[in-house]
Design a protein around this nucleic acid. Structure first.
Lengths: 187, 187
DNA sequence: CGCGCGATTGAGTAATTTCAAATCTAGTGG
DNA sequence: CCACTAGATTTGAAATTACTCAATCGCGCG
C-alpha cells in the first residue's frame, strides 16, 4: 500500500530504498469507514494525511447548518485542516469519509524532522505546496470570474472521476451554489 | 532597502551576514512608476517579486473587460503570476502598480539554486508557501460562506492599511462584487 | 414492495447586477 | 485662491440571477 506514497514522492524527486524506508518510518497508517470523522471542528490536528485509498471531504458548516466544502481528497491526494495543523490551533474544518479510506498519517513533528534530515523531502514538500498554492489561486479566479455553471463544467473536465464518486449535492457545496441551482444547470 | 528582505526572511529563520549577502546576490532590483505594468497577460514570467516599497495588484480581465483581482501586494509581500512562474508558461494575469514601487526580483533558476545551496532558504520558502496556502484556503472559505458585506468587513479588519491606499473599486474587484453593491454595504 | 437518499421541478422571494445619472473629491493650471 | 477636470463614489430603478421552500420523481437495496 505504501508503494503509492513512494510513487507519489518520486514524481518530484527520486528516492533510494533506504531513503524511502526512512521516510515511511515517520508515517503511521489508519483506516476509516464511510461516514466516520477524521477531524471534527474544535479538535487538535496533529497529522497531515496522504490518501492511499478512498475519498474524503473537508468542509465547514455554518451557523445554519449549511456545508461548504473546502476540498475533496482521493487517492494520491493529501488532506488535513492545514490552518490548524501548521499553527497548532483547533480545527475549523470537519473531515469525514465519503467512502472507506486508508490513510498514511504524518505528524508535524515528523514532517519537520524529515525535512530537516532529508533535503529531498523538504524540496518535495516545497514543490507540493507551490503546486497547491497555484491550484487554489485557480479556484479563486474561477470563483471570481466564472458563474457556477462554468465552474461546474471546468470541474467536470478536470476531475471527471470525482463525479462518479460523490453525489451532486456535494459538488454543489464545493462550487458554492445550492443543489437546486446546480441541478438546473445541466438540463 | 534590502534590509527589509533580511528582516522578512529572519521572521522564519536566522541568517548570518554571509548567508544574507549570498542570498541577496541572487536578486536583482527594479523600480516602476504608478500604472506601469510588471507583467502582462501572455508574457513569460521569469521572476517572483518581493515588494520593498509600494503597492501592486495582480488581476485577470475577462472577455467583457471586467477586472478580477487575485491579490494585492504591499511592503514585505511577494507577488507574481505563480502559475506561469512555476510552470514556465505564459502569464494569465496582469500585474501593475497602484503606486510607485521598488522590487527585488528572484528568477526561478536563482530560487532553485538558493534552495539547493542553502537548506535554510528551502525551509523558508516551504514555510512561506504553507502560509500562503492556508491564507488562500481562508479566502476560499470566506467566498463560500460569507456574503460580500461580511467579506468586506473581514478584509477591513485584516488589512486596514489597504483601505487607505486603494480605491473601493479595486476592493470590490478583489471581493467579487460590483462597486455599486459594495458601496451600498457601508451606508 | 416500500423505504430512503439523491435529484428534479415549480413558484415565490431575496440578493445582486446592470445601466444611467448625479455627486463628491483631489489634483492641476490659471 | 478658484475653476476645472478626471477619477471615484453614490444613488435610483429595472432586470437578472440565485436562493428557499415545498412537492415530486427515480432508483437501488434490504
Amino acid at each position: 500500500m505504501s508503494i503509492a506514497l513512494r510513487q507519489h514522492i518520486e514524481k518530484i524527486t527520486p528516492l533510494t530504498d533506504q531513503e524511502f524506508d526512512y521516510i515511511l518510518s515517520h508515517f503511521t497508517s489508519k483506516k476509516l469507514k464511510k461516514h466516520q470523522f477524521l477531524i471534527q471542528e474544535g479538535d487538535g490536528v496533529s497529522n497531515d494525511y496522504f490518501v492511499v485509498k478512498g475519498l474524503l471531504k473537508a468542509y465547514h458548516v455554518d451557523s445554519e447548518g449549511k456545508e461548504y466544502i473546502m476540498q475533496f481528497a482521493m487517492e494520491d491526494w493529501w488532506i488535513s485542516d492545514y490552518q490548524a495543523y501548521f499553527n497548532h490551533t483547533k480545527a475549523t474544518l470537519n473531515i469525514d469519509c465519503v467512502e472507506d479510506v486508508e490513510l498514511l498519517c504524518l505528524s508535524l513533528h515528523n514532517r519537520d524532522k524529515l525535512c530537516a534530515d532529508l533535503h529531498k523531502i523538504e524540496h518535495f514538500f516545497r514543490r507540493k505546496s507551490n503546486m497547491g498554492y497555484v491550484a487554489l489561486q485557480r479556484r479563486i479566479l474561477a470563483m471570481l470570474n466564472s458563474n457556477a455553471k462554468e465552474r461546474y463544467e471546468q470541474l467536470l473536465l478536470q476531475y471527471p472521476a470525482l463525479f462518479q464518486r460523490v453525489p451532486k449535492t456535494l459538488i454543489a457545496a464545493y462550487l458554492g451554489v445550492s443543489r437546486e441551482t446546480l441541478s438546473r444547470f445541466y438540463s
